[in-house]
C-alpha cells in the first residue's frame, strides 16, 4: 500500500554563503522562496510542513506555516528529514529545498508520476554529476529507520544516503531545474534569467540601525534588495515597513562609513546608516 505523502520544505539553513535568509529571498511577485516552495508542493501532497530550527519558529518568513522543528543541531538537511519522519513515521515525505529558483511544474509532475513506493526513495539524478539530488525527492516510510541509523553513525550527507539506499533515480526533464542558488552571485544570476527588469534595477544594500531607529526597526542591521536609487528613496521605502517617527529632515545619512548626500546614487553592497539627531556629551 502506498503511504500518504506529506510535503517538507527545508528552511532551517543558516544561509551562510548567501549572507541573508535564503527562505526570504524573492524573485517574482513579492513571494518569498519559502512561500513559493510551499505553494509548488501543495497540489501533490496531503499537507505541507516547513522544516525549521527552534530559533526560527517565530520569524516573519516562517511563522505562517506548519512547522517541524529540528531535534538536533548543525546536522544540515538530514536533521529536518529525520525530524519529520519521527513526527509522522507512517507517511512518505516529499522533501524540497527552498533555494531552487528554476524548479518548474514539469519537474514536480514527473517526480510525482514516477514515485516508486516499493523503493526507499525516488529522486532525480543530478544533471551535473549523475549523483542523486536529495533535496527534491520522495522518502518512503521504509527509509526512516535506515536514515536514522545513518545519522546515528555520524553521517550527515543525504546524497550519500540515497546512493547506498534502494533509490529509484530519474533523469530530470530539464537540465537546470534543480540548480540551487547559494551565494549572492547565484541569486543575481538567477534573477537576471527569471526577472530581468528587476535584476537591472534592484540592488543589495546593507542597512545598520542605531538608537531610536534601531528600536523602531526591531533590528540592528539587515541586507535588503531594493529598487531605491538614493538614500532618500531607501528611507521612504523603509518607512513603509517600519514605524519610523523621525522625518528625513532631522536625519543625516552615511554611506560606507562617510557622511553622504541624500541624493547620492546607491549601488549594490553599499552600507547605509541613517543618523538620528545626535546627543553626545
Amino acid at each position: 500500500m502506498t503511504a500518504q505523502l506529506l510535503g517538507l520544505v527545508l528552511a532551517g539553513g543558516r544561509s551562510t554563503r548567501m549572507q541573508r535568509d535564503k527562505a526570504a529571498l524573492q524573485y517574482r511577485d513579492g513571494q518569498t522562496q519559502l512561500a513559493a516552495a510551499v505553494a509548488a508542493l501543495r497540489p501533490f501532497v496531503a499537507d505541507v510542513f516547513v522544516s525549521v530550527r527552534a530559533d526560527q519558529r517565530d520569524d516573519s518568513t516562517r511563522r505562517e506555516f506548519k512547522q517541524i522543528v529540528d531535534q538536533i543541531d548543525s546536522a544540515g538537511p538530514i536533521a529536518g528529514i529525520t525530524a519529520a519522519q519521527a513526527e509522522h513515521p507512517q507517511a512518505a515525505w516529499w522533501v524540497l529545498a527552498c533555494d531552487l529558483p528554476f524548479l518548474d511544474a514539469a519537474t514536480l509532475d514527473h517526480l510525482a508520476a514516477q514515485r516508486d513506493s516499493s523503493c526507499d526513495a525516488t529522486a532525480y539524478r543530478s544533471s551535473h554529476d549523475g549523483l542523486p539530488e536529495p533535496l527534491c525527492a520522495i522518502y518512503e516510510p521504509r527509509s526512516r529507520e535506515p536514515l536514522a541509523a545513518f545519522l546515528a553513525a555520524g553521517r550527515q550527507c543525504p546524497r550519500k544516503f540515497l546512493l547506498q539506499a534502494n533509490t529509484r533515480l530519474l533523469a530530470a526533464p530539464h537540465a537546470h531545474a534543480l540548480d540551487n542558488a547559494n551565494t549572492s552571485e547565484d541569486y543575481w544570476q538567477a534573477m537576471a534569467k527569471l526577472n530581468p527588469t528587476q535584476a537591472d534595477t534592484a540592488r543589495d544594500i546593507h542597512v545598520q540601525y542605531f538608537a531610536l531607529l534601531r528600536e523602531q526597526a526591531g533590528r540592528r542591521e539587515q541586507t535588503l534588495t531594493t529598487t531605491a536609487r538614493t538614500p532618500r528613496e531607501l528611507y521612504d521605502e523603509l518607512r513603509q515597513q517600519y514605524p519610523f517617527t523621525l522625518s528625513p529632515d532631522v536625519l543625516r545619512v552615511a554611506v560606507n562609513g562617510e557622511f553622504a548626500d541624500w541624493s547620492r546614487p546607491l549601488s549594490t553592497a553599499d552600507a547605509v546608516v541613517f543618523i538620528p539627531p545626535v546627543a553626545g556629551g
Partner: peptide, 23 residues
C-alpha cells in the same frame, strides 16, 4: 563632539519612562 558625532543618549526617568534625547 556634541554636535557632530553620531552618538545617542537615552535617558531613563524616575517615573519609569525613557527617551532618546533630541529624537
Amino acid at each position: 563632539v556634541k554636535h557632530r558625532l553620531p552618538i545617542w543618549k537615552k535617558e531613563h526617568y524616575e517615573n519609569g519612562d525613557s527617551g532618546w534625547v533630541n529624537c
